[in-house]
Design a protein around this nucleic acid. Structure first.
Length: 490
RNA sequence: GGCGCUAUCGUCAAGUGGUUAAGACACCGCCCUUUCACGGCGGGUUCGUGGGUUCAAAUCCCGCUAGCGUCACCA
């Protein structure tokens, strides 16, 4: 018995946008294929001319590459089952559609598409196509062809009985044939519909497993009927539950714009690491049963992945958890790695700060969930926020405006004598200063930190900030604060 | 509306007839602390509902409800 190689297809539309749910489907297909030592095939479903977006194929390929999902075959990945772009396969669909017509599984339909005619009639709304051309007599049919009337090819559904198919997640699913419409297979422009093309291509490309969203469950019987009409072997179906989003009012619905970022790219632009996104998405609807581990590399994901860990129910996309996971990735990075990843979020830094990016990274990496938080977090280093005396007053550390002056003044005098403006020296001097003052560390540090940062919350403490600011700017801020504080006092 | 899918903490989830119903995120408290983080410790909250089956049900069956999906010359 020959072992059939596992082959998974991923067939996105070139819309210039990769929804998280879509990416997850691709990821699961990839993980399963690789765990079986099988193939992951990228195919572009571009049969809807109206939706075509320029460069969208490259966009899809780049996105997959960023997510470390590498197709074995695809438009630009080679393979022996091409072309991998549906619009280049029109002759193939035509041929199979004709075969269906000849064998009585499909028919030509000359009815015009009245999509503009709006009808308020509820029955019509749910009625579907009325099958007018299903049994045209030969004369009328030929007259239409001679007259070159445009037509579509429709699938001839059985009027009775039911169709059952097996889904790995859901088991057997049965739908009455009477529920199935005589759907269009080949459009009047000669393009196939998804429902037709996907069957032809999956078969021709030797796809063994179809993994896709649950929204395709109801149309699967139509596909199954097509496989049967051609006498082809059925692939294994896996229908994934959708990825949901939670609105502010608490309602849950399919993840969409109103829930914020919905595409892989949106997330990357917000400063989440691709690895972290992939890791999080992998766990959104799948769990590795045998372990409580949550941080996985792609290699580990492949090793651990199995179908029985897939969840049947919808999963809500949770930014909290993504933030946490993202933070875990940042914390695991070296300062250099973080500096590199964060580079474009640092913005225009002055020469001094630019030279301290790596050190700055050591401060930032434990405080950031996404890189886009960086600009707001480091702004005070480049530009002193407006003076606010209120900030100096701190009950817990027993600091008042007056007390602040008492601390800042001698501290400034002491620091002015420090030439070696390094972390070690600064640390040592300030520790000694605190010691000599006889005050609690917090009491000394509070007003100093406020004076040089102008903010209640900062990444790092007095020593770190002083170092980052550099000697000149550090002393200047202390001086300015002292002046401003003195004015307040009188 | 017809048809279909789903139903364990706020969220991701383990669980497959007998468990103190794991774990993680979030939340709250404490510790650490130079603010915020990091790290450590602890805490609360969960089986949608009604019927069965069974000595025993989160687990099996049925109804209900709710959510989602689908009913295109879109995928």
């Amino acid at each position: 018995m020959k072992k059939i190689r596992t082959r998974f297809g991923f067939a996105p539309s070139p819309t210039g946008y990769m929804h998280i749910g879509n990416l997850r489907t691709a990821l699961y297909a990839y993980l399963f294929a690789k765990s079986q030592d099988g193939d992951f095939i990228l195919r572009i479903e571009d049969t809807d001319r109206a939706r075509y977006v320029a460069d969208a194929v490259e966009f899809i390929e780049n996105t997959l590459a960023a997510a470390k999902i590498i197709p074995d075959e695809g438009p630009h990945h080679g393979g022996n089952f091409g072309p991998y772009v549906q619009s280049e396969r029109m002759a193939i669909y035509k041929k199979y559609a004709e075969e269906l017509v000849e064998n009585g599984y499909a028919y030509r339909c000359f009815c015009v598409n009245h999509e503009d005619e709006n009808t308020n009639d509820e029955e019509k709304k749910f009625g579907g196509y009325n099958r007018h051309c299903r049994d045209l007599d030969r004369e009328e049919l030929e007259a239409n062809i001679v007259a070159r009337k445009p037509y579509v090819i429709r699938q001839k559904m059985p009027l009775t009985g039911e169709t059952t198919f097996f889904d790995v997640l859901h088991g057997n699913i049965t739908i009455a044939n009477s529920e199935l419409e005589d759907q269009v297979l080949l459009k009047s422009d000669g393009m196939p519909t998804y429902n037709f093309a996907n069957v032809i291509d999956d078969h021709l490309m030797g796809i063994t497993h179809i993994i896709r969203g649950a929204e395709f469950i109801t149309s699967t019987p139509k596909h199954v009927l097509l496989y049967k009409a051609f006498g082809w072997e059925l692939p294994t179906f896996i229908h994934l539950a959708p990825v949901m989003g939670k609105s502010e009012d608490g309602t849950v619905s399919k993840l969409s714009k109103r829930h914020g970022a919905t595409s892989f790219n949106d997330l990357v632009e917000m400063g989440y690491l691709p690895e972290a996104i992939t890791n999080y998405v992998a766990l959104l609807g799948w769990n590795p049963k045998t372990t409580n581990q949550e941080i996985f590399s792609m290699a580990e994901l492949i090793e651990k992945f199995s179908l029985d860990g897939l969840s049947k129910s919808p999963a809500v996309f949770d930014y909290n958890k993504l933030d946490w996971m993202s933070g875990e990735y940042f914390k695991a990075m070296t300062d250099e790695e973080f500096a590199k990843a964060a580079d474009k979020f640092f913005g225009e830094l002055d020469e001094n700060l630019a030279s301290k990016k790596v050190y700055l990274s050591s401060l930032l990496k434990t405080r950031v969930a996404k890189l886009s938080e960086i600009p707001a977090m480091i702004k005070f280093l480049q530009e002193m926020p407006p003076f606010d005396a209120e900030l100096f007053i701190n009950k817990r550390n027993k600091v008042t405006v007056e007390k602040s002056i008492e601390i800042i003044k001698p501290a400034l005098e002491m620091l002015e004598k420090v030439e070696d403006w390094t972390l070690d020296t600064l640390n040592e001097k300030i520790a000694a200063f605190t010691e000599n003052s006889g005050l609690k560390t917090g009491t000394v540090m509070w007003p100093l930190r406020i004076a040089i940062s102008g903010q209640k919350v900062t990444p790092g403490g007095v020593v770190e900030i002083l170092y980052l600011l550099g000697r000149e700017e550090g002393l200047k801020r202390l001086t300015d604060a002292l002046d401003a504080l003195s004015n307040v006092k009188q």
